[in-house]
Design a protein around this nucleic acid. Sequence first.
DNA 1: TACAATCTTGAAAGCGCTTTCAGAGAGTCG
DNA 2: CGACTCTCTGAAAGCGCTTTCAAGATTGTA
Lengths: 333, 333
Amino acid sequence: MPTIRDVSQLAKVSQATVSRVLTGSAVVSPTKRAAVLAAIEQLGYQPNTFARSLATNRSYAIGAMVSELSSTVYGEIIRGIETVTEECGLQMVVASGHAREDAERGAFEFLSERRTDALIVQADVTPDDDLAAWVRDSDLPVIVIGRHIPAVAERCVYLDNVEGGALATRHLLERGHRRIAHVTGLMHLADGSDRCAGYRYALAEQGLPFEEALVAEGDFVEEGGYRAMQLLLQRDAGFTAVFAANDQSAAGALKALRDAGRRVPEDISLVGFDDLIIAHYLYPALTTVRQPFAEMGQAAARLALAALGVDEQKEVTRRFDPVLVERDSVAAL
Amino acid sequence: MPTIRDVSQLAKVSQATVSRVLTGSAVVSPTKRAAVLAAIEQLGYQPNTFARSLATNRSYAIGAMVSELSSTVYGEIIRGIETVTEECGLQMVVASGHAREDAERGAFEFLSERRTDALIVQADVTPDDDLAAWVRDSDLPVIVIGRHIPAVAERCVYLDNVEGGALATRHLLERGHRRIAHVTGLMHLADGSDRCAGYRYALAEQGLPFEEALVAEGDFVEEGGYRAMQLLLQRDAGFTAVFAANDQSAAGALKALRDAGRRVPEDISLVGFDDLIIAHYLYPALTTVRQPFAEMGQAAARLALAALGVDEQKEVTRRFDPVLVERDSVAAL
DNA sequence: TACAATCTTGAAAGCGCTTTCAGAGAGTCG
DNA sequence: CGACTCTCTGAAAGCGCTTTCAAGATTGTA
């Protein structure tokens, strides 16, 4: 492996000059510059990242922690991040939180210790306060994705979940549904309570009352959706449509509906949330509210770069708007 | 940030000694060792990775290139890799090939240049020969995942696709089906031709003839599966079951069947391949052949570590066996 | 008791970059 | 034409580790 020293000797200049053309940190006369470039070419020289990092105290890598790696959601986030790191010649190192609080913390610490230049964190179970502390107390820029934490809002990239819940509900309302049930997510998480708030908000817009009997708490996974739907069915509150807090709950609800002999969308309309890959494959294909995960990942990465002073990007979108994706699970009343 | 120097002064020993207790590279007397540990604790010292890397010429990171990041398959592979890198205190840096040959090459080069200690490559479109060249010519260990390339077999982690195809077909055979159609994958890829070979093999085992009319070429994605199924239907060759070369093709085939008014599994049985997350969500839930992606990722990582002399693991499984996952898309004849 | 063999230890030399600092030319102006 | 300012360049000092090498301490052996 040739070093900068070899290049400098071949080009008959000092190492400093080679370094300058490499980093563009200062002007170099055209002749020397050309000589350096030629030498680099000839030797097939590639700068040693370790040495560079040691000298500059930058890793030229950004860390991404996602709660769970093998989920399409996080895959898309990672992809979003990767597109921008790649574009900037930065590495992306990823760690998984394995959907457990201790592991999320562990992954965060691991990434911090190894000195990535910035950290993007998508935590499912770590509480807001802890995340806020991570952002505040870490000596590298930390961007939080998928959470809106007021205390550190400028470091958060998130979806407007209230609007999303309202969007789903309004869609049903527009199709003439008046008695709309809601399978919630975990209500102690912002994602859950915000989407529910959106549901109530949309109902209120139409002057419709909020009925306890029409809502059942789910847990963001299929089983919970199934159980919540059973409960709803059993209450027999006469609804014609259901808004499930995410696609997995919707899948569970769909199964419960099917098991109960109700047809979707002929008897009951159903709307999900997230637009996971499965939404497309369910039968009937699920109408749902899309979260632009990849774009959010990109935004987080840009925010991280901006915090590092690398990216010139003026304003990065931090709050994303959900969009309704119509498929086949909703019928007009 | 305290450095090794600070630690050595506080502990009243040399930097070399501190380094020795840190890396365990040599014995240190219990007293000094304790002093060092105490100093480290007191200062909250963390070794600087950059300096360490520069000195040892190791990055303590392994690179993973996957063809497409936002796919559950690759998510699982990545997760598998991560579990072992985490266990060994190594970072995992990931890059995406964006399912294009030039990008796959680009990602590979990017990772090589940045000197990860080893590289795990899952390429969809790069030809076998190029991959073999990467393995052979790279100066760091390269492990190929999801391909069996005889020339560099000891660096490959792969599924026995022939056996997988046979497994799917036998399952149908055991349920009494005799006329079994096959929606292939891309036949110029080993995954496609091997699974087809398995199909033929299982047929032959039962003394059944291979009929051209019963096979239609798909492309591993939904649209191709849909079209292939339409073609099969239109030929009217009287089959009672279909083996689709992957779950996405199966999803397309399922839709075509449904559109043609055929019920699955009552009229036609269907088996997929991969056991993607969608298999569970299709209706009826898809019986399919599972690839143990996470385990394969782990194996690849262990192989990489073994090549680095880090892991003591004696023998790492390189060829994985597919397993049949029974759900609701197959009925006995 | 003397000497060889073995352990432990510290000094110092890298690893390959970046960056500061000062000097050498070149250009400008009165 | 001399004084002064700019621009470009190179020497050298780190960055914070690991590792070699030789010396000192310790133990064992004759």
